[in-house]
Amino acid sequence: MASIRIPTPLRAFTHGKDRVEVVGSTVGEALSNLVERHPDLRAHLFNDADLRSFVNIFLGDEDIRFLQGLDTEIASGDSLRIVPSIAGGLG
């Protein structure tokens, strides 16, 4: 099993948990397992099947966009982290 760390604004959708254990051999499978167990998270993480552009997923210290994206392989014991892109302004 791998784990996914949940950022503060999304912990309301994981019953307050800051870390969720998941199954899967890739980042995409792990995230799918996460949203199967916490369906209300889906809208905050995905646009259809794609990761939202305002959501970063880190494997250790690496942004998965600089690895193999959702196809990045993970092993039991790996730690994933959801990191919100905080941005805004006048636009």
């Binding site: 950022p7 503060t8 604004p9 999304l10 912990r11 309301a12 905050h44 305002f54 919100p84 892109s85 905080i86 941005a87 805004g88 302004g89 006048l90 636009g91």
Partner: peptide, 20 residues
């Protein structure tokens, strides 16, 4: 918001997170 009101823009809302 330089030289603009302290109200959320469409860009702010587009990038917003809940419970934050």
């Amino acid at each position: 918001h330089p030289d603009a009101p302290a109200t959320p823009s469409a860009f702010d809302r587009e990038h917003s997170y809940p419970d934050f």
